Computed example of a mutant assay.
Amino acid sequence: MNDRVTVIWAREPIPAGPSVFLAGPTPRDADTPSWRPAAIAAIESHWQGQGPLLVLAPETAGGLRESDYDNQVDWEVDGLDSAGAILFWIPRDIRRLPGFTTNVEFGLYARSGRVVLGCPPDCPNPERNRYLVSTARRYGVPVLETLTDTVTSALAVIGAEPAR
């Protein structure tokens, strides 16, 4: 574990400081692995900023889902609003990782100047990301194909942001 990177899990208080929000589809069953641990590991490996970094992960440590939907939504909106960078990683799989909420979140924040979009070309349904990629290009959002490149791009956004 990197002591310069702190993961803030869903519904935990969000402290002030440089942060990246890990936006993208969340597994809906125990058989579907989350992509977020790999993203967190890549962030820990690549973060070279001046101080500590917060990683806002809209999952619960241990994988438990929130029974109060409004609490989860409120936390995610607060996290998205406060994050210095919003990393969208969308390994689209309509059956296991549909990402319908992710589509809405991307649309809401695409023009913020804080978004990067990662869409792996080898995911089960890459054709379902075409509109997001087109929208990203229209608004100057970086579009990447690997999780590591997406992380690097998001960290560059944080490095260019004034402290929030």
Rank of each mutant, 00 (worst) to 15 (best):
T150M: 04
T150P: 06
G118D: 09
S134I: 04
F100G: 01
Y131G: 01
N125Y: 07
I90R: 03
W89A: 07
P91W: 10
L132W: 01
P121G: 13
P120F: 14
R92F: 10
V143Q: 05
S153A: 15
G107I: 11
L108H: 07
L132H: 03
D149S: 14
S112K: 13
W89M: 10
I94W: 01
V133A: 11
P126N: 09
R138A: 10
F100E: 00
R95D: 12
S153I: 01
A110M: 13
V116D: 15
L117M: 14
S112T: 14
T148H: 09
P124M: 09
G99H: 10
T102V: 07
N103H: 11
Y109Q: 08
E127L: 10
S153K: 06
L144G: 00
E105F: 04
I94T: 06
T135S: 06
D149R: 04
V115R: 09
R95P: 02
Y139Q: 02
L97H: 12
L132Q: 06
R92L: 07
P126K: 08
T146W: 11
L117K: 13
N125K: 05
A110C: 13
D149V: 00
P124T: 05
L97I: 07
V141I: 05
N103C: 11
E105K: 12
T102N: 06
D122W: 02
G107D: 08
A136L: 00
T135V: 14
L132R: 06
R137E: 07
R95V: 13
L108N: 09
E105V: 12
F88E: 01
L97W: 12
Y139E: 02
L147K: 00
D93V: 13
S134E: 11
D149H: 04
C119H: 12
A136K: 02
Y139S: 02
N129I: 03
P120E: 15
Y131W: 10
N103F: 10
V141P: 02
C119G: 11
D122G: 05
W89E: 00
R111M: 12
D93E: 00
R137W: 00
L108W: 11
R114P: 14
C123D: 03
G113I: 14
R138G: 02
P121L: 14
T148N: 08
G140A: 05
R137Y: 00
T150C: 09
V141D: 01
P120R: 14
N129R: 04
L144M: 04
R92S: 06
R96W: 12
G107N: 09
E105N: 11
